[in-house]
Design a binder for these strands. Structure first.
Length: 394
DNA sequence: TTGGTGAGAATTGTTCCGCC
DNA sequence: GGCGGAACAATTCTCACCAA
């Protein structure tokens, strides 16, 4: 950003002029015998500025040097800066040496203002380009202190922080609402059918292949990564896509071309997909026609016996059983036989259909929530970007 | 400060086996 | 015997901590 672009009263200053880095090592000896509030990179969530988890650690269990921090610091993850790990603690403790404790000069710079600045897409992209180490990029603290930050008067900083905090709070409420809706669908299922794994309602038990047709995915060519098969108009999904889908596959990241289609197989929209390698037992309903490899099985419920929406939700409850069925080798797998022989509950079809109807109406709400969450997320990024060019607050 | 290392997940490669 | 599908093994990738 150029100086001339800044609004009146704003200054462009180097971070070292308004903040310092407290990276004095605390040795294991200094921590011995005391409980420590320890934060590692794994405790800070990417992009959100939130703590994922946290626990007290006995100093005796800490074997390497750490950095100390207080509630005046910002914790900035310097390893793989693209992960965007920033956290503002409200307690004192020690952190991994891959986290830099930054202490702003409170007369000039508000901690929260700097926290948002470090999370802007523009800053992340810039600092990532300046990081060192080809395979394991890290930010050098000196490089960080050399970064220029647009600095408005303190009152303006408070105004900007208030707007961004409000937007972020709304975003969080939206995420909580989505989690509740997801739970609602599970609760409705359990209320109507009980846990399929224990069958407390005493439904009939049948083999999975008695109510559905099972077909394994296909990708016969080796090696599998030959580029000539990819980049066409046929969606191609992998086990990871199923894991991330939350039960409904609406997007895909890979496609096959005509040549790829010849060595794979196209499955119809609406089919249930289940992972039999890596993320064993993860399921989803396909929202588009798609190909998939042999680590995925397609399950098509017979219309006179099972409802697809009911079947997908039911199969989720057998995940642990399927995992336990997989032979203990370096790479666990289950095969078509294990899946076909899986004992599943079979409630009356009209009850399954009733559940599907309720689930669909809940899904409509989820779709609206998801759309809103995406909009809120891009709104926050947009506002953060505008905040540091002076466009957010006059 | 930065390379090494480990764990777990995801993807790719190899072997076995049945069918034509 | 050759081919293709299934099963399983190996490798790669990602993300974290450790220690020189």
């Amino acid at each position: 950003m150029l100086k001339k672009e800044l609004p009146e009263g704003w200054r462009l200053v180097k971070l070292e002029e308004v903040a310092k880095i407290d990276n004095k090592a605390v040795s294991p000896d200094e921590m011995r015998g005391e409980l420590q509030n320890y934060i590692g990179l794994e405790n800070i969530e990417s992009n959100t500025g939130q703590l994922v988890s946290f626990s007290e650690t006995l100093g005796d269990d800490i074997k390497s040097n750490k950095f100390g921090f207080t509630e005046e610091h910002i914790l900035y993850g310097k390893l793989r800066p693209y992960l965007n790990k920033v956290y503002l603690p409200d307690f004192a403790g020690v952190c991994s040496t891959d986290i830099i404790p930054i202490k702003p000069d409170s007369d000039l710079l508000i901690r929260e203002f700097l926290g948002y600045f470090l999370r802007t897409p523009e800053f992340v992209s810039m600092i990532n380009a300046k990081s060192s180490g080809a395979n394991l990029p890290r930010v050098n603290p000196k490089t960080l202190l050399d970064v220029y930050i647009p600095l408005p008067p303190i009152e303006t900083q408070y105004k900007i922080v208030a707007i961004l905090e409000k937007t972020e709070a709304t975003q969080r409420l939206r995420a909580e609402a989505d989690a509740l809706t997801q739970k609602l669908m599970q609760n409705v299922f359990l209320e109507m059918f009980g846990d399929p794994a224990t069958n407390p309602k005493g439904w009939d038990i049948v083999k999975l292949d008695a109510i559905a047709v099972l077909q394994r995915g296909k990708f016969s060519h080796r090696p599998r990564n030959e580029p000539r098969f990819y980049g066409g108009s046929y969606p191609f999904i992998q086990t990871g896509d199923i894991s991330r889908s939350g039960g409904r596959l609406t997007t895909f990241s890979q496609t096959l071309n005509d040549e790829g289609l010849k060595i794979s197989k196209l499955f119809k929209k609406g089919i249930i997909v289940i992972a039999i390698a890596a993320n064993i037992g993860d399921t989803a309903i396909l929202d588009f026609d798609s190909c998939f490899p042999d680590s995925v099985v397609g399950v098509s419920p017979m219309p006179d016996k099972a409802n697809p929406i009911f079947t997908e939700m039911m199969l989720r409850h057998y995940k642990n059983i399927l995992w336990d069925s997989a032979p203990e080798t370096a790479q666990r797998n289950i095969n078509l036989k294990i899946l076909s022989d899986l004992n599943v509950i079979l409630p009356p079809l009209d009850l399954q259909n009733r559940f599907a109807k309720i689930a669909q109406s809940i899904q409509v709400t989820r779709d609206i929530q998801n759309k809103s969450a995406v909009e809120k997320s891009s709104l926050l990024n947009n506002l953060m970007s505008k905040a540091f060019t002076g466009e957010l607050v006059a």
